[in-house]
Amino acid sequence: MEHLFTNLATALTGWMITLGLSPVWADVILLLVKWIIIITIITLNIIILIWLERKVSAFFQERLGPNRLGPFGIFQTIADAIKLLTKEDIVPSAADKLIFKTAPMFFIVVAVMLYTVIPMGQGMEVINLNIGLLFFISMGSLSTIALLMAGWGSDNKWSLMGAVRSVAQMISYEIPLAFSLLGVVMISGSLNLQDIVAAQDNIWFVILQPIAFLTYFIAATAELNRGPFDMPEAEQELTGGAYTEYTGMRWALFFLAEYTNLVAVSALMATVFLGGWQGPWLPSWLWIIIKTYGVILVFFWVKWTFPRIRMDHLMSFSWKVLVPVSLGNILLTGAGIYFCQWMGWC
């Protein structure tokens, strides 16, 4: 079970070489296959996640949630997807049409790119980048541009307000997010995610870096635009924020991208702080799924408990609390490493 997927990949490459393909071409085709698998995983994940969020939120509120379509309402998302596919596609006449139309595509592409570097098991990733963590952070911050495009292109006050809010929010929270990961990088001494996972062989980084874990969790919630930081959408205030003017599938792409981001960020959290794919008994790819879903459930729990924070508090919290705390954490980590080396422990 453990090497199921890696063995499959090796067999596929071997088979292609026997067909007469050069190893370079075989690698390229394998990469394509990996991409297709990633997209399938994302789609499946989202169908399950949206259903799960509806179910979990219902349980928090003593309701039942979708339960009529299929067992436990599992096909509810499929019906929604079919409906969204067949909705009329409205582009407002005043909109900046090119920007309006490309924004959702840009958003989802950026979200899918995040999956390139996440190790989904032992030796299972699309590309084993030596700057994986840096790639992830930089790709994640690109989604800001997509939201700004959506807000600007819609030519709607709600959209623009939502977009401006989200830009301010995401840029502010990008910094503590990156800083909180720096502590881990300092300990493991690598930006490669596989190396970071390997470094957690003995002890998870959540124990060595509890402050970084907490700041990462808060900053990630803000990065994902999830409650209590769901400023860009903020249904009760901005009616739909940056997505106000979008209909049907274009709107669904934003929605999909948000959930894609959610999975990616949770997977990174599991990788960096919770030991990644490492775990006893079960195969490595199952461990990362379990950990990721555990983190996602906590995200749900937080969202369905807390009220929405106010914009100016949100900003001041980032700059006055999270940034100093994460900087302090880096200092503390550095001091700790120096102390260890001085004592000769590592």
Binding site: F59, Q61, E62, F306
Partner: peptide
């Protein structure tokens, strides 16, 4: 206060649902 709130929702998560199946 945040933790208390989380505790309340968690308690309700495991309680029986009150929904009537019309």
């Amino acid at each position: 206060g945040l933790i208390k709130g989380l505790g309340i929702t968690l308690k309700h998560f495991f309680q029986k649902e009150i929904t009537e199946q019309y």
